[in-house]
């Protein structure tokens, strides 16, 4: 059946908050490229997150409306994959490796200290949007354990104090 989908922008755009029309258009293009097929949801979410840095609720509601998917389903997918985030990412990302080698060498202490000092758990972002803390499985730097990636750069043989020092240097 080929009934043209009625543009329902009127519904969604009114509550789009901070999402610009250009971004919306891009999301629309991605959905259209997949013919709004429900099984393309992950790709659509992926692209949306790379455009916005995270998945705001408004964007999820918009995608649900256009792909005719219930919000409960979308939210299930978003929370299932750690990759997706519904809160904005901080300006700086700190990924603590929790692979076996790093864990043995005290990665957990780093995570605990970060929690004490920044008040956030892995996967969370500080309210001032300065830092996001993540954990990862082995990042392939076992010989230099414990390893931490800060803004893409691998730091080896870290201590909790050294990580905090690094982070403090970043604005």
């Amino acid at each position: 059946m080929s009934i043209p989908v009625q543009a329902s922008q009127a519904v969604a755009t009114s509550s789009m908050g901070a999402i610009s029309p250009e971004v919306l258009e891009e999301i629309e293009r991605v959905m259209a490229a997949y013919h709004y097929r429900p099984d393309a949801l992950i790709q659509v979410l992926h692209r949306t997150q790379s455009l916005l840095g995270y998945l705001p609720k408004e964007a999820l509601a918009y995608i649900g409306e256009r792909m005719k998917l219930p919000l409960s389903h979308i939210y299930g997918v978003v929370t299932f994959y750690h990759f997706f985030s519904t809160v904005p990412k901080g300006r700086h990302e700190c990924v603590v490796c929790m692979g076996t080698a790093c864990y043995v060498k005290g990665a957990e202490r780093i995570v605990d200290r970060l929690e004490q000092h920044l008040g956030i758990k892995p996967g969370q972002t500080t309210p001032d949007l300065r830092y996001t803390v993540q954990v990862a499985r082995c990042i392939g730097a076992c010989s230099l354990a414990p390893a931490v990636i800060i803004d893409g750069k691998v730091h080896s043989q870290m201590t909790p104090a050294a990580v905090l020092r690094e982070l403090r240097r970043l604005k």
Binding site: P70, L71, S72, H73, Y75, G76, T79, F80
Partner: peptide, 9 residues
């Protein structure tokens, strides 16, 4: 209604 879903894993 599709209100309810399972989140996280």
């Amino acid at each position: 209604a599709q209100t309810l879903g399972v989140v996280h894993r």
